[in-house]
Design a protein around this nucleic acid. Sequence first.
DNA 1: ACCACCATGTAAACGGTTACATGATTAC
DNA 2: GTAATCATGTAACCGTTTACATGGTGGT
Lengths: 193, 193
Amino acid sequence: MDVKTLCLGVLTEGDQTGYEIKRSFEQAFNHFFSAGFGSIYPALAELTRRGLVTCRSVEQEKRPDKKVYSLTPAGHAALVAELMTTPPRHKVRSEFLVLAYFAHLLPPAQVAAIVDRMIATWEPLLAEISTYAEGEGCPAGVPATASTCFVAGFGRAVLGAALDYVQAHRRELVEGVAEIDATSEPPMALAGD
Amino acid sequence: MDVKTLCLGVLTEGDQTGYEIKRSFEQAFNHFFSAGFGSIYPALAELTRRGLVTCRSVEQEKRPDKKVYSLTPAGHAALVAELMTTPPRHKVRSEFLVLAYFAHLLPPAQVAAIVDRMIATWEPLLAEISTYAEGEGCPAGVPATASTCFVAGFGRAVLGAALDYVQAHRRELVEGVAEIDATSEPPMALAGD
DNA sequence: ACCACCATGTAAACGGTTACATGATTAC
DNA sequence: GTAATCATGTAACCGTTTACATGGTGGT
């Protein structure tokens, strides 16, 4: 499952340009998928080449031409086929947790700053997802369905749990590494390795 | 932050072979980082070339030689420098949630199967992480510290929330997509796109 | 003036996954 | 006999990220 599949997916909700597709990704898949222009534009070119989407240029005044993409029947079939055969994976890649795991190698103040930055990142994200989790559809007019509520609700539940956890255990972590710092592992260049 | 950094990290806990490092990854970073031999062995070669680890061959009877890697002072410094400058990210890549988001394109039975497979994947993982979250260190003799408890506790909290959520909303999702299937989107090849 | 937004694309670099290659030991 | 474990490595492939390249509009 790659960016191409996701592009087909968002195009089931209506025709869009590459630029708009990226916006859709950011709004709908915020918390579990991301893609930049550098992967979206080549993906759309490839999908066009394969006949899974069609592309029409729309001239605009005072703006460069838009390229609006539409899903073809073949594209719809390819999407369904892909979804049917995709095993349900869920991978997390967390530099934050790596940092926490090796927190005893860092100054306590930095550990505190790291946790705070993570909290600051998650708080607005949780707030945004929470609005989608209630009947509110995405801003782009996509109505709320069982599916969109399920994924938004999932995001809210999981992010909420993450936030609660780090807020509750922040002190424990910082004080825990401070102790080690004081007893056995001086900050740097004071004792030999 | 890549596999090289993680290798330096686990080597702070004692000398290990490439094979053992993979085991360490699986036990310690189970839920937020993964790496295969195909990235670990080249990483160790590169770290050796850079003088961040040293490697000594240990002859074994009835087995091929082991290569035991040790962190050098330069490696320790490089690790700390890397940790100090790494921004705390936390990325999720979830085919499962993509599948759920587009669940209305799939037969309800398949949606149910997908959710069930995800639950079956998460349950044993949660059980394993939970043991680490209590004072139990990793099997490999690494003692429980504030850091290891923090990351294990985080994993338990978040995975627990995920499991609870999908178990509580499984029916909702399956019935929600069944409705759409019945009213507006026949399974395949019965109505035009 | 400067920044954000709209709008599209290319190319190189990077990093990870997968498959291949080898081979002995131990347990079922 | 078959599979899992221990043990190391290479090479091709795949996909994403990042940087570059361009350029008008609209707001502060």
